[in-house]
Design a binder for these strands. Structure first.
Lengths: 203, 203, 203, 203
DNA sequence: GATGAATGAGGATTCATTCAT
DNA sequence: TATGAATGAATCCTCATTCAT
């Protein structure tokens, strides 16, 4: 069917390669964790010569960082989007949205947890990422809960995020109990937000 | 039955050796994580010949498993103890006790998290451990909250444990905000238990 | 014969390219030595695509050889020039001229030493180069010292060259002692030539 | 013949291994130079597993340093020995002895030159070595030439060493001309020392 | 011809594990 | 039984060289 595809432009090829590598890296990091993952396997899974892999990512850490950066961007965007919808949402709706948001991140980028927790190297990225998430959530909370002071919002955000981290675990539970667990988690988050709102002298 | 042989003290010596190794292993695993930890360093830190180390723990994984097993026992015992005190406690008291319990486990055995999350090898131990924890907590909940059905108790326990996992993170926050975060987390756990109790039509 | 084609300037362009590459190569070889130098860096420093670099010099060794050849030519020319001036010079003057000559070669082409000493590959060039130098110096000596037999001249030349090699080292001594060392070396070379002359029953 | 040699003590075995490794390293470094030499080849040539090689020498550089240190010790000892014999020797004898000394060092440790000149890593060792050699020779000169001031002795020593470096080259010349070259070099060194002595107002 | 992406052999180094002593 | 030297597979990474565009 495709007659003589004039072979995709160099740039495009490079882009695809990078995408393939990142996908493979996500898979391997997810399966084995940062330390146990090997560049060789990532190369093999993405059908890339090891040398080429290193052309794009000069270091295992650089690769992890790139992945984390992408993840961070997605998270940031998701949070920003959510923030814009806050005015039109109920507190419960926001709670649910936060859970859904984590669920999405998790399903797409479960590896990030592994990478964020990896000891080695520049925690720089990791710290910045955490901070960004916290600020994003805190910002949403401030908008959602009238009277919530910024400092308090930050605290609630941190606890909320720790809680939402649990979503990661829940998502990987046996499918049987998964739905039930999610429901429970959802109601807990709602409960927490409502409580926070009340404590802030809300609605 | 067996006459007192001079080998008898060997048993004792072996026990000490094993203890020393495990202590060293805890330290090294905690500092470097499972992958980065080396058997050689563990041997050195416990003043054990590498050969002897391998006599007691034929594999790095075996060592990790032993550590995890010990951790699991402690957790189990702690939970059992807590369970006995349930009748004399308020729901809030139980909530606090659970947080304290996690805090204790965490401070004493922070390495366990690293080991539990280590992908490699027999998740057998890990799964069993999780299950034990869940059952333990569920059992406490059933006793604490009249009318809570076992199935529901299990669900609440799982969510609670995920939440309590956050304690781990909170404990490693900057000391400045740590206290505040802990207080917040505590009140959240209380809130959750109270809510669960109400939903169960409890007290 | 061939009509003026637009390809004509290409020749010129190629020449420039080659010159740029060689300059970059000199720099890199000098800084890092033969082994540690990389074709990629040489390409980059001369703003040449790696592919083009390989068009001109099909091998790292070929590049080194080209550099060495150029160096050899310069040395040869310098020696030839010096030879022509011999009739008008005193023995001492010639001694000084030889030291200066080595100093010049050294300052301009310090990398050559590194390349000459690089074991790998075709010592062919290197041997030829050495021979040329020896013959050049021997030739000067024969002219400068009446009665010096060619065979003896060659021997003196070889020893002289080994000595002059020391100039390389002296030039890289700490500036403080450098001047003094050079003076000393100069007087030694003079001494040697005078002695050789006397032994030959010269002037 | 050998019945049941109780297998040489561990320590002894280790010593032999180290010796074998160093010998192999000398060979490989000599043949290929520092950069081109590979740990793998050194291991293979000394019939040592690569891991064992690294147990004794944790780094390629460490191996080179060890070699250099051994070389330096030999040089130092040789020089010290020579120094003691100075009182009973003529200047010419000393000149010859210096040449012989270099010849010995060279024949036994020709690789050292390659290592001393290797760019990478701790020039520390190299500098210290050079300085030791210079001081050793200067010390001999001070004793041998009455009236030679220490500062001047140092200068002469440096030039002398540069010259003697030439011995290295001469020794690797074609055997045919080698003897002749050596004779010539010898007489040059004598000449230099005598001249230095005269300039110092000697004998 | 020019370009630079792709290749993969090869190098230094680590570490779990074995086994001779 | 205790010891620690020995082993070698496996890891990360580099770089000369090729070749499709």
């Amino acid at each position: 069917m495709e007659p003589a595809r004039p072979t995709e432009p160099k740039r495009e090829r490079g882009r695809r390669r990078v995408a393939a590598i990142m996908e493979a890296a996500v898979a391997v990091f997810t399966e084995k964790g940062y330390d146990a993952a090997t560049m060789t396997e990532i190369a093999a899974r993405s059908s890339t010569a090891i040398g080429s892999l290193y052309r794009f990512f000069p270091t295992k850490e650089a690769l992890a960082d790139a992945l984390l950066l992408r993840y961070a961007l997605q998270a940031k965007n998701g949070l920003a989007e959510l923030q814009q919808q806050v005015p039109e949402m109920t507190l419960e709706g926001i709670a649910d949205a936060l859970v859904d948001f984590m669920l999405l991140l998790q399903s797409q980028r479960g590896y990030a947890t592994a990478l964020v927790d990896a000891r080695s190297g520049s925690d720089d990225h990791r710290k910045r990422f955490r901070e960004a998430m916290r600020n994003g959530v805190a910002s949403i909370l401030t908008k959602a809960i009238a009277g919530l002071k910024p400092a308090k919002a930050k605290v609630v955000a941190v606890v909320l995020l720790h809680m939402l981290k649990g979503v990661t675990g829940v998502a990987s539970e046996e499918p049987a109990s998964r739905a039930m667990l999610l429901t429970e988690l959802r109601s807990l988050v709602r409960l927490y937000l409502v409580s926070a709102s009340e404590r802030a002298g809300g609605k």
